[in-house]
Computed example of a mutant assay.
Amino acid sequence: MKEQTIFEIIHNMDKVTNNLIIQWNKIFYENLGVSHILVLGHIMENGKSRPSDIARVLGLTPPTLTHLSEKLVQKELAIRLEDKSDRRIIYLGITDKGIEIVKRANIEGQILRKNLFEKLTDEERLQLLNIYKKLNDNRN
């Protein structure tokens, strides 16, 4: 594969991703980024979690997660919980307000994806899904 082609692929993938993020930010008026929603979504799916575990799973640095969690707690979308057996251990939990935000964000995301992917045929969507699965397969 020619080098130029690899850079064109990467550039176009980035453009699609950036365009989706820009569109989502325009319709989702909560002053939250995609990373905030990912953190809330992780807690919603997995229950209360240690920030270090959330950071590892989402591929974020611990300082980034600290910054994100501060805003989530400030906006009353998440809460800090102490471990009853070891007060040094802190968990992040999600509030009812946080659950509602995740649900709304998912609905908005579904609308954006529908608008984006309706340009593709069913066969093209399946091909794209298989390509992304293959690219995300950690077994080399």
Rank of each mutant, 00 (worst) to 15 (best):
I10M: 08
I22W: 07
Q23I: 14
N19H: 15
F7N: 07
N12H: 10
T17A: 10
T5N: 04
E30M: 07
H11D: 04
F28N: 05
I10Q: 07
I27K: 05
L20H: 02
V16Q: 02
N19I: 10
T17I: 12
I21L: 12
L32M: 00
E3V: 15
N31P: 00
N19Q: 15
K26Y: 00
G33T: 10
T5I: 09
Q4P: 01
D14T: 08
I27L: 04
I10F: 11
I27C: 00
E8F: 12
I27N: 05
I27M: 04
G33A: 01
Y29R: 12
F7A: 02
Y29E: 13
T5L: 06
K26R: 06
K15H: 12
E3K: 12
N18G: 13
F28P: 03
E3Y: 12
F28E: 03
L20M: 15
K15G: 03
N25I: 02
G33W: 02
F7Q: 04
Q4M: 08
N31C: 00
I9T: 13
I10Y: 09
N25Q: 12
V16F: 03
M13R: 02
I6D: 05
M13S: 12
D14M: 10
E3D: 14
V16K: 04
I21A: 03
Y29A: 05
H11W: 01
I22Q: 14
F7V: 06
V16L: 13
D14V: 08
T17P: 00
I21W: 02
I9G: 07
I9R: 15
Y29F: 04
T17M: 11
N12D: 09
N18V: 05
F28G: 04
M13G: 06
